[in-house]
Deep mutational scan, measured.
Amino acid sequence: MQFKLIINGKTLKGEITIEAVDAAEAEKFFKQYANDNGIDGEWTYDDATKTFTVTE
């Protein structure tokens, strides 16, 4: 399945899409990606669109 991350950071904005087995695997990848890029904010997930959003 495809999952999307929308980044609304103070210094980094954009979107990335990955293939993952389930939402838990996608969330783990996205949170590591955000951590690696210094993004720390509020997370939301929309199951209907398979979209995670992080907002700083």
Rank of each mutant, 00 (worst) to 15 (best):
D40P: 11
T17Q: 11
G14F: 02
D46G: 11
D46K: 08
K28C: 03
G14E: 11
A34Q: 12
T44L: 05
V21K: 06
F52M: 09
V54K: 00
N8P: 03
F30A: 15
K4A: 07
L12R: 01
T49N: 07
Y33P: 00
Y45S: 15
D36W: 13
A48W: 15
I16Y: 05
I39R: 01
F52S: 02
E19M: 15
Q2A: 10
T55L: 06
L12C: 03
F30H: 02
E19W: 09
K4L: 12
N8D: 12
F30V: 04
A20L: 04
N37R: 10
I18F: 09
Q2F: 07
K13M: 13
G41L: 01
E42S: 10
D47I: 13
F30E: 00
K50C: 03
T55N: 04
I6S: 08
N35L: 13
A23G: 10
A34N: 13
E27W: 04
I39M: 13
E42Q: 07
T44E: 15
G41V: 01
E56H: 14
D22T: 03
E25V: 10
K31Q: 05
A24W: 11
T11R: 02
N8Q: 10
T17M: 10
N37S: 07
V21D: 08
E15Q: 04
Q32L: 07
L5D: 00
G38T: 06
Y45I: 10
K28H: 08
Y33D: 06
I39K: 01
E27H: 13
N8S: 09
T51D: 07
E25Y: 11
T51P: 00
G14Y: 05
E19Q: 13
K28M: 03
T49S: 06
G9M: 09
T55A: 13
Y45G: 01
A48Q: 13
E56L: 03
D40A: 07
D40C: 02
T44Y: 03
K50N: 09
A24P: 15
G9C: 02
T49H: 12
V54A: 14
K4M: 04
A23E: 08
L12P: 01
K10Q: 12
A26S: 12
K4H: 06
D36Y: 07
T17W: 14
F3N: 00
A20T: 10
T55R: 12
A23H: 15
D47T: 14
K28I: 08
A20S: 08
K31W: 11
G9P: 04
A48F: 14
A48S: 03
G14A: 09
K4T: 06
I7M: 11
I18Q: 08
T49R: 12
K4D: 06
E27S: 06
I7T: 13
D40F: 11
E19D: 12
T55F: 05
N8H: 07
K31M: 15
T53H: 08
T49W: 14
D46Y: 10
F29K: 09
A26K: 00
Y45D: 01
T55M: 04
W43A: 01
T53N: 15
Q2G: 15
A20V: 04
T53Y: 04
Q32F: 12
I39Q: 12
F52K: 00
L5Y: 01
Q2R: 14
E56S: 07
I7Q: 04
Y45P: 00
N35C: 02
A26F: 00
E27P: 00
L5Q: 00
K50T: 11
D46E: 12
F3G: 00
N37Y: 07
T11K: 08
N35E: 04
E27L: 12
K10A: 09
G38M: 10
T51G: 13
L5K: 00
T17E: 15
K4G: 14
F29V: 04
F52R: 00
N37L: 10
D40M: 09
A26W: 00
I18M: 12
E19R: 15
T55K: 12
E27M: 09
E15T: 05
I7A: 07
I16T: 08
A34K: 01
L5H: 00
W43P: 04
F3I: 02
A23S: 04
A24F: 04
N37F: 03
K4E: 05
D40G: 10
D36Q: 06
T55H: 12
T49I: 05
V54T: 12
M1N: 09
N35W: 05
T51I: 15
Q32I: 13
Q32D: 11
G9Q: 09
A20E: 04
F30M: 03
E27T: 11
Q2D: 14
T44Q: 14
E25M: 05
N35Q: 12
D46Q: 10
D46W: 07
I16H: 08
I16V: 15
A23P: 12
K4Y: 14
I18K: 14
G38D: 13
D40H: 12
T11Y: 07
V21S: 04
L5P: 00
F30K: 00
D36I: 14
A26M: 01
A48D: 15
I6M: 02
A20Y: 11
I16C: 03
D22R: 08
E42R: 10
E56I: 06
E42F: 05
F30S: 15
V21H: 15
K13G: 15
K10N: 08
A48E: 14
I18T: 08
G14T: 08
T49K: 04
T44R: 13
W43Q: 03
Y33V: 04
Y33H: 05
T55P: 01
E56D: 07
I7C: 02
Y33E: 12
E56Y: 05
T44A: 15
I39F: 13
F30Y: 04
E25W: 14
F30G: 11
T17L: 03
L12S: 07
Y33S: 08
E42G: 05
G38L: 15
I7E: 01
I7Y: 10
A20W: 03
K50H: 09
Q32G: 07
T44G: 09
E15L: 02
D46I: 10
K28R: 05
G14R: 06
D40R: 05
I16Q: 04
Q32C: 01
D36F: 10
A26Q: 00
T53C: 02
V21L: 07
K4R: 02
D46L: 14
D46F: 11
A26T: 01
G38K: 06
E15S: 03
Q32V: 09
T44I: 09
L12W: 04
D47P: 12
K31T: 13
V21F: 08
E56M: 07
D22P: 04
K13I: 11
T11A: 10
I39L: 08
K13A: 13
V21C: 06
E56Q: 06
E25G: 11
N37H: 12
A26N: 00
K50M: 03
K28N: 10
G41M: 01
I7H: 06
V21Y: 13
E15P: 03
T51W: 12
F30L: 09
G9V: 11
T51H: 10
T17A: 09
E19T: 12
E15K: 03
E56F: 05
A23V: 11
I18A: 08
A26R: 00
E15C: 03
K4W: 09
E19N: 13
I39G: 01
K10L: 14
A23Q: 14
N35F: 12
I6W: 14
I6K: 15
A26L: 00
K4Q: 09
Q2M: 10
I6C: 03
W43I: 03
Q2Y: 08
K13P: 07
D47W: 13
T51N: 12
G14L: 10
A24I: 10
I6V: 12
D36V: 05
G14P: 13
T49Q: 06
F52I: 01
K4V: 13
K28A: 09
F3V: 02
T11M: 07
N8T: 02
F29A: 08
T51V: 03
K50L: 06
K50A: 13
Y45W: 14
D22I: 13
N8M: 09
Y45T: 09
T49A: 11
K50R: 14
F29H: 14
G41S: 01
G38C: 02
F30T: 05
I6G: 06
A20C: 02
